[in-house]
């Protein structure tokens, strides 16, 4: 089978929680090596889309195709689950709760290698752990530390290294830089750009931060109340938003000279 054009695609994706429709008829495709952002506010359904893609929620309807294979129903058995893990990884928002506090960084990365690079022996794994640590900019002392001894930015580097250990084709970044200080966020954004160049991995970025979206992606979809309201090239959508909701989002971002305005008929 030839390489599929899209490394990750969803078609007619829908998720209901009881009477609430969280995600309604969402379609998109990320080309190999591409980077796509889903933008929206709380309740837009963007995180639910991410959770369905990595198998944390089961879609009510629709298809999710990663690396040419459907993953819209739960994996049957460990081998299938592992294969899916090797295709798509996720980095969560909160670096304080997404790592095991009792596990040193090297062990956390090694654990992923045991699962996803079973052909490597102990020495090769040790070398690979060091390589991944170097790629995300963690020094030897930090690699031996437990998460409690690391700062938020350092922990997020660990989470990225751990995701990369599975050599995924796609990394889902669910607000992965939102909790970081400005100076650290810039470092992690640069790191993600470098990782993409070095490994050819694709990104699905879930974010409310339009500036971060511009920095990291080429394509964007804007979601509101579960539906896609606008899509296109990131620069084009941000420079010249067409839909009223996108225009409101864009106008709400504080930039130099920005003045907050009351909305007419706001809730």
């Amino acid at each position: 089978m030839s390489e599929p054009l899209a490394i990750l695609g969803v078609v007619g994706l829908r998720k209901e929680f009881g009477p609430l429709v969280a995600v309604d008829d969402v379609d998109f495709a990320i080309p190999v090596g591409g980077s796509l952002a889903i933008v929206g506010e709380s309740g837009s359904g963007k995180t639910t889309v991410a959770r369905m893609i990595v198998g944390l929620e089961r879609p009510t309807a629709g298809a999710i195709i990663a690396c040419g294979r459907d993953r819209s129903t739960p994996a049957r058995g460990a081998a299938e689950r592992r294969r899916r893990g090797g295709e798509v990884q996720i980095v969560f928002q909160d670096p304080y709760s997404s790592l095991d506090p009792r596990q040193a960084v090297t062990a956390a990365i090694d654990e992923v290698l045991r699962l996803h690079a079973a052909d490597l022996d102990a020495d090769a794994r040790r070398a690979r752990v060091g390589e991944l640590g170097g790629l995300v900019g963690l020094d030897e002392r930090q690699m031996r530390a437990r998460p409690g001894a690391l700062s938020g930015g350092q922990r997020q580097r660990v989470a990225i290294a751990r995701a990369l250990a599975a050599t995924p084709r796609v990394i889902v970044l669910d607000e992965s830089v939102a909790a970081l200080d400005v100076s650290i966020q810039a470092q992690v954004l640069n790191l993600l750009a470098d990782v993409r160049v070095a490994t050819g991995v694709s990104f699905l970025l879930i974010s409310h931060d339009l500036a971060v979206v511009r920095q990291l992606t080429e394509q964007v979809i804007v979601m509101q109340r579960g539906r896609i309201v606008e899509r296109g090239a990131t620069a084009a959508v941000l420079d010249d938003p067409q839909e009223p909701y996108t225009q409101l989002l864009r106008a709400s971002v504080p930039t130099a000279g920005w003045k907050p305005r009351r909305r007419a008929g706001a809730r």
């Binding site: 971060v212 511009r214 920095q215 620069a235 941000l238 420079d239 971002v253």
Partner: peptide
């Protein structure tokens, strides 16, 4: 350090 919303670098 802050990414820009109006330009890409």
């Amino acid at each position: 350090a802050r990414p820009s919303i109006s330009s890409t670098s």
